[in-house]
Design a protein around this nucleic acid. Structure first.
Lengths: 124, 124, 124, 124
DNA sequence: GTGGTCTAGACCACG
DNA sequence: GTGGTCTAGACCACG
C-alpha cells in the first residue's frame, strides 16, 4: 500500500480498514488480521496499525478482545452507518469544493461524468 | 476564515487564494492584497501568507514585483487551466473514493444530488 | 453478564461473586456453583472463573474442597467484614474523587442524591 | 505523581489534567505546559503525555496549536460540562456499587458521611 | 520551540 | 499468541 505523504499514515490506515469493512472484504462479525500481520502486509510498524485500529474500536466499528484478537462489530447497522458516513463525507468534500469554485449542481454532475470516464480510460 | 487544524494553514491559504482567483474575486492581471493585509484579514501570521503566495508565484498564477507588489498573472489561459486543475483534482478525489467504496457512476451521481440538496437545506 | 473491556474479566468476576456472597445470593457456608457451570452462565472461559475463585479462596471468603467442591466460608464475620470492605472501598473512591474536584461533603451528598434519583428514573 | 498500576498511565493522566482544568489550576483559555515539561513533572515519557492530551483535544477540552502549544478551550461551557461529567461519573460508579450491595439511598448517604470523616481523620 | 508522527523494541496481562 | 502499554529516540512541519 502506498501512502499519501501529506497525511498521517494511521489516518490512512483507518480509511483503508473502514473501506475493507464496508466493502465486505472484512465481513460483519468476523475476525480481522492481528496488528502484527497487518503491519507486515501494509509495510508499517505494528504500533501504527494499533493506533488506527484503536480509532475503529472507539467508533464501535471493531471490537478488540485481548485474547481472541479483534473482529468487526456484529452490529450490521453500525457498518451500514459507517458506509453512509464515508460516502457522505467524500461527497460533501467535493460539493463544498465545487460550490467554492462557483459550480452549479449540473456543472458538478457533468464534471463527475467526464472525469469518471477519463479515469477509466487511463486505467485501460 | 476558519482553518482545518489537521492540515497546514499555508496549504489552506493556497487553496483559498486560488479560489479567489478562479472565481474572479481577484481578477486577471490585477493587484492582490499585500501579505500583511491578508494576514490581518485572515488572522494569520504574515510569514504563513508569504509561504502560500510564494507557492502561487511558483505555479505562475501570481507574479511578485518588488516595487509594485503582487498581481494575478495577465495570462488568462493560465487562470483557466488552474480552474480546470482545481475542479478535476476535487472530482478525481471523490471518484477514487466512491469507486473504492464500490459505487457505480449512477450511484455516485445520485449521492452528489442528495448531498447537494442536503447541504443547501442545512444552510437555510 | 456484560463486562467492561478495559478491565480484566477475572477481576470483574471476583467483584460479582463477592457481591453474590455479601447479598446472601450465595449464603454463608453453602456450596457455590462449579467453575464450569459459572463459566457457562457468565459466558466466560472456566480458566478465567478459576482465577477469580482462587482469589476469593485466598481472601478466605470461599473454601475449596477437592471432593465436595467449593463453598462460602462458614465464618459469618468474614462475610460481614467483606461487606464492609467492599462498601468502604467504593465510598472511599468516590470521596477521593469528589474532594479532588473540590467538593464539600454537603455538595457530595447532594450529588449522590441527584444521581441516585436520575439513575432510578433511567431504569423505568 | 503516583500511578495506580492496574490502569494505563495515560488514562490517569487524562483524569489528572481534567481535574486541573475543572479546578481552575489550568484556567479557561490559558496555555497548558508542553508535553515535554509535563513529562518531566509527572515522571513519564512525553509520548505518554501526548496520548493523554490528544484525548482531551478530542473531547474538545483542550486545543492544540502546532506552533503556539496547547491551551484549555476558551469555551467555559465546555469546562462546566466536563466538571459535571466527571462528578456524575464518579457518583454513578459509587451508586451502582452501593445498589449492587443492596444499600438504600439513606444507607449510602450515611456511609459517605462516615467515610468522609474517617478519611479526614487519617490525614491529620 | 512546539506538537505530531513513526519506529523499534520491550514487557505485560490475559486466557 | 493476542492486544495494550510504555519508553527511547528520531524526525518533521510549522510559523
Amino acid at each position: 500500500m502506498d501512502f499519501d505523504a501529506s497525511r498521517p499514515i494511521w489516518r490512512q490506515l483507518v480509511e483503508e480498514c473502514a473501506r475493507r469493512i464496508v466493502t465486505g472484504q472484512w465481513p460483519v462479525g468476523e475476525r480481522v488480521p492481528g496488528v502484527r500481520d497487518l503491519g507486515v502486509e501494509l509495510g508499517v510498524n505494528p504500533n501504527t496499525v494499533q493506533r488506527a485500529m484503536s480509532e475503529l474500536d472507539r467508533q464501535g466499528v471493531t471490537v478488540a478482545d485481548r485474547t481472541k484478537g479483534r473482529h468487526v462489530t456484529h452490529d450490521a447497522d453500525r457498518v451500514d452507518t459507517l458506509r453512509q458516513e464515508l460516502a457522505a463525507t467524500q461527497a460533501d468534500e467535493f460539493i463544498r469544493g465545487a460550490r467554492g469554485l462557483g459550480m452549479s449542481l449540473d456543472r458538478a454532475q457533468s464534471l463527475i461524468d467526464t472525469r469518471w470516464n477519463a479515469l477509466e480510460q487511463e486505467e485501460s
